[in-house]
Amino acid sequence: MSGSTGQKLGGETAQAVVDTAAPSTEVASKSPMQLAAGRLRKDKLTLVSLVVVLLFVLAAITAPLAVHFGWIDPLKSALNLTDEFGRPKDKWGGMSMDHPLGIEPGTGRDTMARLWSGVAFSLFIALSATMIAMVLGVVLGIVSGAAGGWIDAIIGRVIDLTLAFPLTLMLLALASTGLIMVEKYLHTPKGNPTAAVYVIVVLGLFGWTGIARIVRGQVLSLREREFVHASTMMGASKFRLYFREILPNLWAPILVTFTLMMPAFVSAEAALAYLGVGVNAPTPTLGNILNESISYADVVPTFFFIPGFTIAAIVVSFNLLGDGIRDALDPKGHQ
C-alpha cells in the first residue's frame, strides 16, 4: 500500500483511500474458499484426479440403479462360459460384447457388473468409516484443545493407546467375537451386513486419531489468535467461540484428511478381505474381488489386473486430489 493520501475521516477521501489500496474494486468478493478454488482450477493434475474421483463416485451412486433396472447383475453365474477347470472359454478372460471386462473364472459372473457394484460397496464402507472417524476426531480434537487439563490428558492417552494397537492383528483375532457383538448390539442381519458394519465400526473407531491430533493442535493455536480474543471481548459464548469462530478455520485440514482417509480405508477394506475379514462373495467389494482374483493371477491375468488396477486408480486419484486441495488451501505450505 503506497498510502499517498494523508486523509482524514469522511466519505470522499475514505473512498479514495479504499480505491487506491484495495487490490481491485472491480472483482466480486472472494472468500478464502473461493480463492482456493481458483488456485485449484489452475492445477491440471488435481483437476484430472478430481474428474477420476467424480467418475468413481458416479459409478458408486449409479450401481444400485443399474442393478435395480437389470442392466447389470453381479450375482448371476454363467457356468456355460467356463471350461471344466473354471477358466473362461473365450480368450482375454472371456471378454465379449456382453461381458466387456470378461467373466469371473469359476462362476462365470460378469466382471464389469461385479466391479461396478464392488466400487459402490467399497466406497460405501470407506465413506461410512470415514464419517465415523471424522466426526469422532473433530469433536474429540475440539474438546481436547478447548477443555485442556485432565480431559486433554485423557484424550491424549487414548490416542496413544489407539495408535499403539496392532489393529490388523486384533481385527483378525477378535473377528468372531466382534461379529457376534455387532449382531447383538446393533441388530444387524447375520452374514455380510454384520461383517460390513463390523469393518466400518472398527475402521472408524481406530481411524479418528490423526484428525483429532490435527484439530487439537489447530484449536490450541487458533485459540491464541487475536480474533478469538476479540470474540471473547464481544461477550461471545463458548459455543460461538469454538463453532462459529474456530471451526470455520478447520475446514482445510478436515477436507484434506477426508480425501486422504477415503483411499486409506478402501485399501484397508481390500487388505482385510484378503485376510478373510469383511464382506464375502457373492456380495462384491473391491477387496473380495481382488482376493478372488489372486488365485487366478497366472491363468487369467486380465481378471487379476482389473480389480487391482481399479483399487490403485481410486487410491491414487483420491490421494492426488487430497494433496492438490491441501496445496490450494495453503499456498505457502509448499513449493
Partner: peptide, 22 residues
Amino acid sequence: LEVVGLNPEHYNRYPNEFSGGQ
C-alpha cells in the same frame, strides 16, 4: 465502516482483500 473511513459497500468482502491499515 463509513465512520472508520472505509467504503460501506465493502461489507461483503473478506479480510484478505484489505491492507494492514484497512
